[in-house]
Design a protein around this nucleic acid. Structure first.
Lengths: 139, 139
DNA sequence: GGTTAATGCTATACTATATAGCATTTGGGA
DNA sequence: TCCCAAATGCTATATAGTATAGCATTAACC
């Protein structure tokens, strides 16, 4: 049927990504958390007092788009701001944020394991390094 | 730094996908064509008189969202509608559409080949089947 | 022949992403 | 020390992608 498209790695990349992303969005919605929210929480957890700018750099999110995301997480009491100097501040998880992150982490790890199980065993170990190369080895 | 996220296949899938998608969008923008437009053209080319409904099914696009896309392609003279019965119509490429599709195909194939070259050789052949399994083996 | 399903479509909403521009603050070089 | 460039947080805005609900018309099936 659609031989041309299904033989393109890029097309399959997009379809696979949207499928997985939809699953993750659905699963995390029970915590009223979006995928990007989780990536923020886990990064703040591993790197306390990270600034929104640095967070955006690591996650591939524009500075301008971080503002509302941080605000939402702050308004629900998951993160708090700590002034670093006159213009910037660092982010830390509150206890609520720590708990939320732990719950989300469980959901994510279940999904990630399901994801890998859908990949035929002989290809499984190649997926992560291949994907990693695709966005790290950018020009 | 961000060990947890970069070890998740799903996260790497998303980052890789957005990176590749951005490149494709940029490259196709010279033809004023979006990635989804190209997927429509190539499918119509290989399956003349396909209906918007069927096209959407194959490409994972909602019926409601096909309407404007088909209209735009029709307005620029790339596709034409052919009444199949009282309520549905089939799509065909015009000569303009055939030419446009050929140009786009060249761009896409160049990008796809670049994409594969970024993947370390030992993982290269595993990427397509692994990705394919991720969106075809859905429950 | 009448109900059910399919089709194309409108309207709408939300998420993700991107850019331009602004005020404030920091930091480094003259 | 002063000044200028860069960084930071932020506002406003625009676009693409995706999703749902609902509607009128037509086709298909029992």
């Amino acid at each position: 049927m659609n031989d041309f498209l299904t033989n393109l790695p890029g097309y399959n990349l997009r379809r696979a990504s949207t499928a997985v992303q939809t699953q993750l969005t659905d699963a995390l919605s029970h915590l009223s958390l979006r995928p990007a929210d989780f990536s923020m929480l886990i990064t703040i957890k591993n790197e306390p007092r990270v600034t929104p700018s640095e967070l955006g750099k690591q996650l591939g999110i524009q500075r301008a788009n971080m503002v509302n995301m941080v605000t939402r997480l702050e308004e629900r009491g998951a993160v708090s701001r700590i002034a670093l100097d006159g213009r910037s501040y660092g982010l830390e998880l509150t206890q609520t944020g720590i708990d939320l992150c732990a719950q989300a982490q469980e959901i994510v790890e279940t999904l990630e394991s399901d994801l890998l199980m859908r990949v035929p065993p002989e290809h499984r170990d190649h997926l992560l390094p291949a994907l990693h190369a695709l966005w790290m080895n950018q020009n």
